[in-house]
Design a protein around this nucleic acid. Structure first.
Lengths: 193, 193
DNA sequence: TCCCCTGGTAAACAAATGTTGACTTAAAAA
DNA sequence: TTTTTAAGTCAACATTTGTTTACCAGGGGA
């Protein structure tokens, strides 16, 4: 049989289960409102394993954050400006079939930990720069950087408002519904020359 | 002497102190991360008075929310679309001299309480409708309602990103810096015909 | 078969948190 | 002055929460 023998005792697997459960909880409820027992129960795993595999609750949160950041980096790698609205819309509305929550929202969750804050800030900064560059501006143009960051803020704001409050029609808008307004938004902010 | 005798023991005053301290904490750190002892210390008041004046921590949060909603309703009462960008910019950047945090951010804080959720949702919905109407659209136009809510989401997203992460240049942008991009944003989303 | 290493469990811990009730004291009313 | 009412304080409470420690058990290698 292949190397993927279905072992009942699999540290890697349980680690993954914990990570996914934590990602869901932290994104939906925030850091402080989430308890380690909640996460462990969701994962169907003993609480003590969190401390073992991730050192602490904060360690688990940090792992979630880097995982989410990696995911964002992977799915949004060098998108041209023309495709940015769709990319954002898909990011916000989710891959439709996926039950996982929006990675953007996790970026707004805070544990008070400094390491986590730096991870978050690094992604936001580089994301903003990438957006400005994709729009054809020099990356040290402060005005355009501000505009790019506003696009970013708008995206996260939409994602947050969607999940937190059942504000209709925004809450249940599909990616198709969102792409047209987002195109207008991105165009107006970024391609102004 | 007038009715405003400066009493040392003033229930109304202490209530107010608690409300302001709570507003600050809840907005900055969120509901779960804020303890009643933090609030009481900030206000220079005994902890037990929170339960006395507001019934519970959740009661205090609800009071904060309605207070903030009232403030938003007062300062943004029937603004024409042409002035909306400035109004938003000022709301986001704060009245400059004021130490109070952004009321918009509190709208994204959640205590899990249902009553609070309804208050929040009501404001967001009416705010969105008002925006659509101010732009000259019928208030039952779903497409424009969605666009108005995206404007709202963008505003809250900016406010949140400003306070949570020190993302520059967004974090320390002034109201003047923000008004031009916001004008482009609002124009692109709302006045499309 | 026996041993041992590692994944998993359970109970307990100290610290923190929201809330309550009895007590004290300032200041207005008599 | 005395009385009374309300504002404020103090200490304790029952839970909850993150973390640790000691213990159990399955399964691969000898």
């Amino acid at each position: 049989m292949a190397a993927t023998t279905p072992r009942r005792r699999d540290a890697t697997k349980t680690r993954q289960l914990l990570l996914e459960a934590a990602l869901q909880r932290f994104t939906r409820d925030g850091y402080a409102a989430t308890t380690v027992r909640d996460i462990a129960d969701d994962a169907g795993v003993n609480v003590a394993l969190i401390s073992r595999y991730f050192k602490s609750k904060e360690g688990l949160f940090e792992a979630c954050l880097t995982s989410s950041v990696d995911e964002i980096r992977r799915t949004t790698g060098d998108t041209p400006l023309s495709r940015t609205p769709e990319a954002i819309a898909r990011q916000i509305a989710g891959p439709c079939t996926e039950g996982l929550p929006h990675h953007l929202v996790l970026l707004l969750r805070s544990s008070g930990d400094e390491a986590a804050d730096r991870i978050r800030l690094d992604l936001l900064r580089s994301y903003g720069q990438r957006l400005a560059v994709a729009a054809g501006w020099p990356e040290d143009d402060e005005t355009m950087l501000l505009r790019a960051q506003i696009v970013l803020a708008a995206a996260t704001g939409i994602a947050l408002l969607r999940t937190k409050s059942g504000l209709e029609p925004l809450a249940s808008a599909t990616a198709e519904d969102l792409v047209a307004p987002l195109r207008d938004l991105v165009d107006a902010l970024m391609s102004k020359p």
